[in-house]
Design a protein around this nucleic acid. Structure first.
Lengths: 254, 254
DNA sequence: AACCGAAGATTGGTAAGACCGATGCACCCG
DNA sequence: CGGGTGCATCGGTCTTACCAATCTTCGGTT
């Protein structure tokens, strides 16, 4: 069973099929950046579909930021599709947590310089709520979410907030991530509470370095739990050595 | 007339207009998560447009992950639009660049431990392309985009790539950001090239600390240009003092 | 010969109508 | 009362047509 298996995928609409095909052709370099796609009517006859269908596919690419449509001229390639553009992109819980460690660490540091007393009080309340995990597991998870979002909000930077929000959203989309995360949390409750408290204390002291360190430590601990819970030993060792800041033994350069 | 003004859309296509309207209505809570949007034919008569236009708008929402279309049933709300989904996003170029400074600095550091020789060669090519700004301004901007994306991809972390890609997409949506960025770049070309080269050299040495410092320095310079170009003196001084307080002594080396 | 502008060809934008298959619900039969 | 069936509804796609913006070409003007 694929982890990306939605409850329903019986219907492959033509526009999705065509959009996928076009994305693949873009990735293969058939249409370089800046070049023009064939005319809608041409694509229609070429793929044996009607023009409205072609338009729907092109609009899908346009919304993704892959092409730019110029009236009376054509559809021009803006950028080539990345890994995240192809359907079936699955971000593992490990990758996600690693990214959160990097980004939210910085967010916490910035928040330490911008946070208000009210926001500190709010975060303190959330930490207490998180601590009640055994009594209200569901509420604790929500409080955890609110905790991280509150810190992102305290940066006073909407772009940071958006990015953190986005990463959390990706987590919730992955059943694997949710499962592993829950498993990792229940393994040891007290350390998790201590980690959150450490972040809170750093914010209270307006200490950016301490806030970053505490947040990274927290998410690093989550990451370790994930690695432990994952059977994939190869990936685990690879990631572990990478985070140890050791030089790679790959081909040397000048 | 608008001489040489093909920067953006002088033509607001109906589907974009309708998609914007629907997004706003979603944000206002008119259609809660899980609810069904009106039928396509109904929306068509309601907004005085044809059904293909309605379909294009709905497909735009679908690609954005806001709704899910079920054949024979209707379009159902999957999630509400976030701050960045509404066209009235109010993320300023300054906020965006600040966030990129924080995040892409970390991305560069991680990339330094993971990057391959091929990717280094590719990035080197892009740096050379960026340097040809005076000859091909358009291509230089694209190369700049590719430069930052290549580094994110070199992290081997899809979540990092996704986040960096997302931030860039937000930039391209903001006319203000694009204008200011272009203005800031043209102000001084050579330093920008040097900054990119510094990042490249750090990556070539697989030095995470240097990569982070170089990337932060680059985006910090862009940020300074933006602050200079902005008339809002108040915001400028506020941000400047904030960034002065959160230097990282342990890692950043002048 | 170089320049410029107007007309035709090309391309995307939108509309209207039609038919099909999938869905869902109410009604009717057993 | 329960289950099966049929019709109304909805999205998926096609066809045709016309408009608007753009590009190309060519002919006339300087």
């Amino acid at each position: 069973m694929h982890p990306t298996d939605h409850s329903s995928a019986p219907y492959d609409r033509l526009y999705q099929d065509l959009a996928r095909t076009l994305r693949r052709e873009l990735a293969e370099g058939r249409y370089p950046v800046g070049s023009r796609l064939p005319a809608e009517r041409e694509l229609a006859t070429q793929f044996g579909v009607s023009r409205p269908t072609v338009r729907e596919a092109i609009i899908a690419l346009e919304v993704q930021g892959l092409v730019e449509v110029r009236v009376g001229s054509g559809a021009y390639v803006l950028r080539l599709p990345g890994k995240a553009d192809v359907p079936g992109f699955d971000i593992s819980a490990i990758e996600l947590t690693e990214a959160r460690m990097l980004f939210e660490g910085e967010a916490a540091a910035l928040a330490a310089t911008q946070i208000s007393d009210d926001e500190i009080a709010e975060i303190e309340r959330l930490v207490h709520e998180i601590a009640r995990e055994n009594q209200d597991p569901k509420g604790s998870v929500q409080a955890d979410h609110a905790f991280h979002l509150a810190i992102a909000r305290a940066t006073r930077n909407k772009a940071v907030l958006e990015a953190v929000e986005r990463l959390w959203m990706l987590r919730s989309n992955s059943p694997e991530a949710a499962l592993l995360h829950a498993k990792a949390r229940t393994a040891n409750i007290k350390p998790v509470v201590d980690e959150h408290t450490a972040v809170l204390e750093a914010l209270r002291r307006r200490d950016p370095e301490a806030a970053r360190t505490a947040m990274r430590a927290h998410l690093s601990a989550v990451l370790e739990s994930l690695l432990f819970a994952t059977e994939d030993k190869a990936a685990a060792t690879r990631r572990r050595s990478a985070s140890a800041k050791r030089e790679r033994p790959s081909r040397a350069t000048a």
